Computed example of a mutant assay.
Amino acid sequence: MNSADISRSITISPRDQHFAFSTIKERDWLGGDPFRSLVFNGLSITFPAGERFFIRSVKAFRGDIRNETLQSQAGAFMAQEAMHTREHVRYNQRLEEHGCRASMLHEETEARFEWAQTRYSDIEHLAATCALEHFTAILAEELLSKPDLLADARREYRDIWLWHAIEESEHKGVAFDVYQEVMQGKGYWLRVRTMLIVTVLFLQHMGRIFTVLLQDIGQNRSMSARLRLNWALWGKPGLFRKVMLNWAAYFKPGFHPWDHDNRTKLKEAEQFLVYAA
């Protein structure tokens, strides 16, 4: 079975989960480590604006999808992303209650996506969605294949990241398949050019978010704190390093998100989440 066939065979199941963040008193929920917690918190801040952008980008081409399976998958993709948005809004509200300027950073993120929405065409929005979905798919794969990354996390936070990773993996081919269908297989140069632009903007914006979050925990002036954060990002566990190591696969002319078949990991993680619920 080739990658495109695997993509069409996947059942995308929106799971309407709710997480009890209001019960958590600790700010540093990941093993008491402020820097590992901060990495995930920074990513969470970007999700509501990003996932609304993804929904709009795919929805713009719903009428152009001729394949019935892909049409159904696109609807499930949007449902999953809407639920992710809702839960990460609640997650980020809890960050605000812990003294992090999550609302301000969300507004800045929203402004970036709104700028892109008015500046570029619908097909460029979809290409950007494909690029960002590649980042989330790689991050999801790390979380699903390395359970020790969240082993000492508070249960509510561990579960939202596991839930999110399962669904991001499940729908990782949808935006790409919509793009391929709309472009009739001729969109390679737009796809890779967009990835280069998105990568620069993503890393720049995450740098801004991490700087503010360090300020919020009173660590921005500490060289030691910056080194510890960079170690969490690029050393160990090195989430950004691992993402960037797999980033280059996107530039292969015949690339498809399901070239990396992680269906077994999905089943294992789904079972773990059910038992942990």
Rank of each mutant, 00 (worst) to 15 (best):
F210T: 09
E26A: 07
G185N: 14
E268I: 05
T23C: 00
A269G: 13
F19H: 03
S7Q: 09
D64T: 12
I138R: 08
L273D: 01
T69D: 12
Q117A: 15
M206D: 04
I197L: 09
W189N: 11
N262T: 14
F19V: 04
H88K: 05
D122V: 12
V174C: 13
K146D: 15
L144K: 02
R101Y: 01
R94T: 13
L273R: 07
D33N: 09
R101I: 00
R62A: 02
F240R: 05
E51L: 00
L273G: 01
T199R: 05
M1E: 01
T199V: 05
G31R: 13
I160F: 01
L273C: 08
S57C: 10
T129P: 04
G238M: 08
D28F: 12
A137I: 03
E124V: 15
E167I: 08
F113A: 03
E270V: 10
R241D: 03
T129V: 15
E170F: 11
N230R: 12
I6S: 00
A276F: 12
Y188M: 02
T109K: 04
T69E: 14
W29F: 09
N41L: 06
M223V: 13
S169W: 10
D64V: 05
A248W: 14
T46S: 04
L139M: 02
Y275L: 07
G173K: 02
I160W: 01
A277C: 14
A175G: 12
A131Q: 05
W247E: 01
V182E: 12
Q215N: 15
H260V: 15
F21W: 11
Q17E: 10
Y179R: 06
G63H: 11
Q219D: 00
E114I: 05
R158V: 01
K242V: 04
M206I: 15
Q117W: 15
I123W: 06
T211V: 08
P147M: 02
Q219P: 00
C100Y: 13
E68P: 15
D259G: 08
W29D: 04
W258T: 00
G238A: 07
L149Y: 03
M195C: 08
L150D: 00
G218V: 07
R27S: 13
E168M: 07
E81N: 12
F53S: 02
W231R: 10
A175W: 05
E107C: 05
T194I: 13
H134M: 00
A269S: 14
P14L: 05
I209H: 01
G185A: 14
Q80N: 04
W231H: 11
D5M: 06
S13W: 10
E114N: 13
G173R: 04
M104R: 10
F255V: 02
G99E: 09
Q93P: 00
Y179T: 06
K267M: 04
E108W: 01
E114F: 11
G42M: 02
T46C: 06
S72T: 02
W231D: 11
L227K: 09
Q93M: 08
E268H: 05
A175K: 06
N67R: 04
L196N: 08
M104E: 15
K242S: 14
H205L: 10
A82Q: 03
T118K: 10
E51T: 09
G42C: 03
S224T: 15
V58I: 06
G185S: 01
E81T: 06
H18E: 14
R86G: 10
